[in-house]
Design a protein around this nucleic acid. Structure first.
Length: 507
RNA sequence: GGAGCGUUCGACUAAGGGUUAGGUCACCUCCCUUUCACGGAGGUAAUACGGGUUCGAAUCCCGUACGCUCUACCA
């Protein structure tokens, strides 16, 4: 690289950040850090009608949770601010003006109603060479008419004048050479009637001013790339233009099409990185964080959606991702989102994460479930016992709640079919004998005791183990029975057996 | 309709002219485990179609089909 790599992520603050957005951030971040460059967050809030309060903070929080902190942003500052486009309004006006002066853009006075009408009349209406002269603009109108309209402050926009014939060619890092015959694109609005720029003007102006060297965005932007390239040519010169890469889309798990918030709701998985509550509708959309994902797993999973390092390695730390990342190995085709695989990544990361750290991360989940943790060290021990069977952090609640309080319900229906007098007698004897034991016996000790007692009652231990488990945890799940007894200790164990025995006798 | 992009097991993907087309998730079987997992060993399963080029094509070329994205004073 001849100059320092600078990349940017430029979201509109209109709601929660979804998977595709986070992956775009991730690829930007990985690329920047791989090359020792900078990652910039720019807020594209030029559409006041879609602006949502709190969305910007949410984006910052999300990036923070993911560990993808920008080097420059509205929050962090930087030498190329302001980083909110709404605060850069005057800058865009100036460039739009330049384009008009050079004849690459023109004023258009058509009202939204005019356009709607025209679109109704003409089947595939394009505001372009074919119909430009039929519209109300500074090309079709006489010069004095135009200056009159401008003087009277008639609402107007500024449109780019797409050349009649020109082939725009550029090299996309992922896709290679891409060609467009410009005659099929229309005269996009550059500056809106309210004086705000559209995306088209704003990206190129800001990418230039912020010295962006590489511009990555979703594949949905590919069709408008010729407009941006023309603008670069007119305004700053193609030699200054960043290298482009259009990232493949993240698709619905079944069927086809871009993954949307709705798909998550329909299929029961998160699509946003973190919980998002719409300030107006008050509707909350669940996020990966609250669903129980580790940020490392979330990032790891996203990285593997459309990229791999060419080996069989799948579990990567962020440092490993930075070291291995190479845009040219990014896939061209879209990737379907697979929630099962996402959970697998999370499980792998849970296994990898130290129990002490897990205890800290788990605390809020236990708090929310109203489970009181008296001793952190006890929590850590329990985590070690159950972590192998947890895909999500929320699984720890169901997998371990019985370590902290007696189960709310006992699945007696699972015991009853094979329940008999002599088992009743055994468990009575067991609870009595446990009362005799002192201190905190270890699992192995307890197991020996249990088996000896079973033998004297002439019952196979296997016939007794499942009922015991259900008495202790409420159902057919959880770690080894004797590990559980060792942890919850004698008094609780006895209480649970006695309680269950009573339930069973009532049936 | 137009333009652009894409297409390897159900899913994510590897293989960049020569492999029995490999790995992971999911699914199935077995082992371990007197629960559920974890772990271990196996299994099912793919180059969209048709033409070329070539001794040889998943790979290069052309066409077809299908899919997707865009086609707003939204990004």
């Amino acid at each position: 690289m001849d100059s320092k790599v600078r990349v940017r992520f430029a979201p509109s603050p209109t709601g929660g950040l979804h998977l595709g957005g986070v992956r775009t951030v991730l690829f930007n971040y990985l690329f920047a850090k791989h090359h020792g460059g900078e990652f910039i967050l720019r807020i594209e809030d030029t559409d006041q009608t879609r602006f949502v309060a709190g969305a910007e903070q949410y984006i910052l929080d999300t990036l923070n949770w993911c560990g993808l902190t920008p080097d420059e942003s509205p929050l962090h500052g930087g030498a190329y601010g302001p980083y909110r486009q709404s605060e850069r309004k005057a800058i865009y006006t100036q460039y739009a003006q330049t384009l008009i002066e050079k004849g690459f853009a023109y004023y258009a006075f058509d009202t939204p109603e005019d356009l709607e009408e025209k679109r109704k009349q003409v089947p595939n209406f394009q505001y372009s060479r074919a119909h430009r002269m039929e519209m109300k603009n500074s090309i079709s109108l006489a010069e004095n008419e135009v200056s009159e309209l401008l003087k009277k402050n008639t609402p107007h926009v500024i449109r780019i004048k797409i050349p009649d014939e020109e082939e725009v060619v550029f090299t996309d890092i992922i896709r290679g050479e891409v060609r467009f015959d410009v005659s099929t694109v229309d005269d996009k609005v550059l500056l809106k009637a309210d004086g705000m720029p559209t995306y088209h003007l704003a990206v190129v102006v800001d990418d230039y001013l912020m010295k962006i060297t590489h511009a990555f965005r979703g594949e949905e932007w590919l069709p408008s790339a010729p407009v941006h390239i023309l603008l670069w040519k007119y305004l700053f010169g193609l030699d200054k233009m960043p290298k482009w890469a259009h990232l493949p889309l993240i698709l619905k798990p079944e069927g086809s099409g871009k993954l949307s918030k709705r798909d998550g709701e329909r299929l029961g998985f998160p699509v946003f990185a973190m919980d998002w509550s719409d300030p107006i509708t008050k509707e909350t959309t669940v996020g990966f964080k609250e669903k129980g994902f580790l940020p490392e797993a979330f990032i790891n999973f996203l990285a593997m959606l459309g990229w791999n390092d060419g080996t069989d390695k799948e579990i990567f730390t962020i440092e490993e991702l930075i070291a291995a990342f190479d845009l040219e190995r990014v896939h061209k085709g879209g990737a379907k989102f697979d929630y099962e695989k996402a959970k697998w990544f999370n499980q792998e990361w849970i296994k990898k994460t130290d129990n002490k750290i897990l205890a800290e991360l788990l605390q809020p989940f236990f708090d929310q479930a109203n489970i009181e943790i008296h001793e952190r060290s006890y929590l850590i021990k329990v985590i070690g016992l159950v972590k192998d069977r947890c895909h999500l952090l929320t699984d720890f609640i169901t997998q371990s709640s019985f370590f902290f309080a007696a189960p709310k319900s006992i699945d007696t229906a699972a015991i009853l079919p094979k329940w008999e007098e002599k088992k009743q007698a055994f468990f009575t004897a067991l609870s009595n004998s446990l009362k005799e034991m002192k201190g905190k016996p270890l699992a192995a000790e307890l197991e020996t005791h249990f088996k000896t007692l079973a033998a004297t009652h002439e019952i196979k231990p296997g016939d007794l183990l499942l009922p015991l488990r259900i008495m202790l945890v409420g159902g057919k799940f959880g770690p080894g029975v004797f590990d559980i007894i060792e942890s919850i200790e004698l008094p609780d164990t006895i209480a649970r057996i006695v309680h269950s025995l009573q339930l069973l006798s009532e049936k």
